[in-house]
């Protein structure tokens, strides 16, 4: 990331302008030409530095009111295989291996489960339990009670 990328990121991280030519608007704001803005964005997209460009829905507003972080204790030797299998389930998002803190935190596999009700989430949990089979040493569900802060990622603008 060079200085120009950083400027483009800070100009767009809160969102694209809702005008007919959004990339031209960004270019004018930064005092560069719109081709450069488009090329830089395309380049960051190709490199995976931009995951995607589009709408980020508020899943609470879409009716997904039951949102649980599910945490699983699985054998370290099997985690790659199990993580890949879990990821293939259509309702699984954000599947990660994370460190344990023994004895108080034995869980090493994390995934978010979203549903319109806790019953729907419970049904998804059972599908995960079934898939993990004998490798599931233990699990817990941590439902979100409230969002305390959500600003998203913000690079600070330099100068």
């Amino acid at each position: 990331m060079d200085e120009l990328d950083r400027k483009i990121i800070t100009a767009t991280q809160a969102g694209l302008p809702l005008v007919k030519k959004p990339y031209t608007a960004i270019a004018e704001q930064l005092g560069i030409d719109s081709e450069t803005v488009k090329q830089r964005l395309q380049n960051m997209l190709d490199k995976g530095q931009i995951r995607r460009i589009g709408a980020v829905p508020n899943h609470y507003k879409l009716g997904y009111k039951a949102n649980a972080m599910s945490v699983w204790n699985v054998p370290d030797d099997e985690i790659k295989e199990l993580g890949d299998q879990l990821s293939a389930l259509p309702f699984v998002s954000h599947c990660y291996e994370r460190p344990r803190f023994l004895p108080e935190w034995p869980y090493n596999l994390f995934t978010m489960l979203h549903g319109k009700s806790r019953e729907e989430v419970a049904d998804k949990v059972q599908q995960v339990v079934k898939l993990l089979g004998e490798y599931c040493v233990g699990y817990e569900l941590l439902y979100s009670k409230q969002i305390l802060k959500k600003t998203g990622l913000r690079l600070k603008a330099k100068d």
Binding site: G15, G48, P57, N58, L153
Partner: peptide, 12 residues
């Protein structure tokens, strides 16, 4: 707030 954002999602 049906959408929280519209634009590029960066991978920090």
């Amino acid at each position: 707030r049906t959408l929280t954002r519209f634009g590029p999602m960066y991978d920090i």
